[in-house]
Amino acid sequence: MPGVRKTGLKSHPRREHSGPFLLIALPGLLYLLVNNYIPMFGAFIAFKKLDYVQGLFKSPWTGFDNFKFLFQTKDAFVMVRNTLLYNLAFIALGTVCAVLIAVLMADVSRMPAARFFQAGLLLPNLVSMVIVSYLVYAFLAPETGLVNTEILPAFSMEPINWYSQAKYWPFILILTQMWKTAGYTSIVYIASIAGMDAGMYESARIDGAGKLRQIFAITLPLLKPTIIVMVLMSVGRIFASDFGLFYQVPMDSGALYDVTQTIDTYVYRGLMRFGNVGMSSAAGLFQSVVGFILVLGANSLVKRFSAGDSLF
């Protein structure tokens, strides 16, 4: 037995043993194929003017006509800017918050209270955005909200009509997003911290390293690969946005469009009345292609600076 293990590790570490593992992965692979790869075939609809009598395949080609509406006005700039900037903020702040939570949780995890904290961290992620939007509304409603009726008067400040003041919303949206997702994202980090060798911390402690020193010298460097993978994965979604966050939470308020319009909300608002399959496919294809290019780009950047940590 030990001999087999040794050769297995040395020569072809994967091939000989991959069979059973592939079988385990089979349902997942099938799911990927059926759910994610086969539908990609439909991307050609983005270049068609759909005619229901002639059917999908015989409908006339229209070139890039279906894409035009995305770039028709100066909204194009606003929505692309919003989508990108919000996602960048979410990725940066989200990673910081999640790692911070994970580092803090690592020391709590042995206490009985840990279960309570973990459940508490997960809970916001299970709340639907529609409900989140009403939680936010309970705080910000102009006439009845907690902020305007209790908090601002306590500092003797004038009530603010939140839903018509665009300048506050970048902060409100980021805060809401962090509240909802940071706990959930931190699970991956908590898991990888839990897997770290306790011996290292022990010897660090013997050598006289304090808590902070341990975090910066051991935990964070060991977390780096996980962080990179997580960031790369979110970079792929950088052109997509959480529709609920940008549509429901600001209550679809027109005065806030400058800071809440993203590609998804624009497509929704614009196409609601047409049900045009070609144009919606075009928008989806555009987001995916740009996301794909960005993942490739980010990955090759990672490769250049820290070869071992790249995704592929």
């Binding site: 027109g254 469009y257 319009q261 608002r269 614009g270 045009n276």
Partner: peptide, 18 residues
């Protein structure tokens, strides 16, 4: 004029309620 209408719908919902 589908492209124009799509853009106009957005302008409408941005300003008209206010």
């Amino acid at each position: 004029v589908v492209n124009e209408i799509t853009a106009l719908n957005n302008v409408y919902s941005q300003y008209i309620p206010g």
